[in-house]
């Protein structure tokens, strides 16, 4: 035993974080031991407080300490447009742009046939209820252009089309500052497909 049991336990717990190996866990544990007592208490309180208070909004499944969340209760939001995203962090990425003023719906994942993750694991039923009950005019699918993303978009399109709302998917193409020479075929063909008049 190289570490005394409480320290070994702390290292073991840090190692459970994504992307944290034994060395990083040791570094973090020693950093915690060197912090003053108040800072350690604040850290512990922040962790338990976030865990206690942050929940999924019952309407849009975004993470929030209020239910319904701030976006769902805001009067400034256009409820006739729903932007569907895979994860709560995608909402934050879109909010950073300050371009979209509609509401969101977080699917809590994507359909992944290879991992056995089917539509029943996602909040698709709730999305269909929202589109039906709130008379939504446009559903914007802001979903990654991966195999899992494409499978989810095809499945959602199949279910949403009969409800009569306009269904759109965000454009794909070259990222800002990219080099055409290094772009792959599918990105370039998507960029050509989504070209627009200047």
């Amino acid at each position: 035993m190289f570490f005394t049991p409480p320290l070994a336990k702390l290292i073991e717990e840090f190692q459970k974080f994504p992307g944290v190996g034994p060395k990083s866990a040791q570094r973090m544990a020693f950093y915690v031991l060197n912090m003053n007592y108040d800072s350690v208490q604040n850290l512990a309180f922040a962790i338990t407080d976030a865990k206690d208070k942050v929940k999924n909004c019952s309407k849009c499944f975004h993470l929030s300490s209020n239910d319904p969340c701030e976006i769902c209760t805001s009067d400034k939001r256009d409820r006739s447009k729903i932007c569907v995203v895979a994860e709560a962090r995608d909402v934050i990425a879109l909010e950073r742009t300050r371009e979209f003023k509609g509401s969101y719906h977080v699917l809590t994942g994507l359909i992944s046939p290879l991992e056995g993750k089917g539509p029943e694991h996602l909040s698709i039923r709730e999305l269909l209820n929202r589109v039906h009950d709130d008379n939504v005019e446009e559903v914007i699918l802001a979903i990654n252009p991966t195999i899992e993303g494409d499978a989810t978009v095809l499945y959602l399109n199949h279910l949403l089309k009969p409800l009569g709302s306009k269904i759109t998917r965000i454009a794909f193409g070259l990222p800002v500052g990219a080099d055409l020479e290094y772009a792959d075929d599918s990105t370039l063909s998507k960029a050509l497909e989504g070209r627009r008049e200047v």
């Binding site: 046939p113 290879l114 499978a151 095809l154 199949h158 792959d184 075929d185 599918s186 063909s189």
Partner: peptide, 24 residues
């Protein structure tokens, strides 16, 4: 270097599922 991406497969959920079955 990308040689082929089978873009048509990604437009049909049935065909996509069968292709993923081949991969699996």
């Amino acid at each position: 270097e990308n040689l082929e991406t089978f873009p048509n497969v990604r437009k049909d959920l049935n065909r996509l599922s069968y292709c993923l079955y081949y991969a699996e």
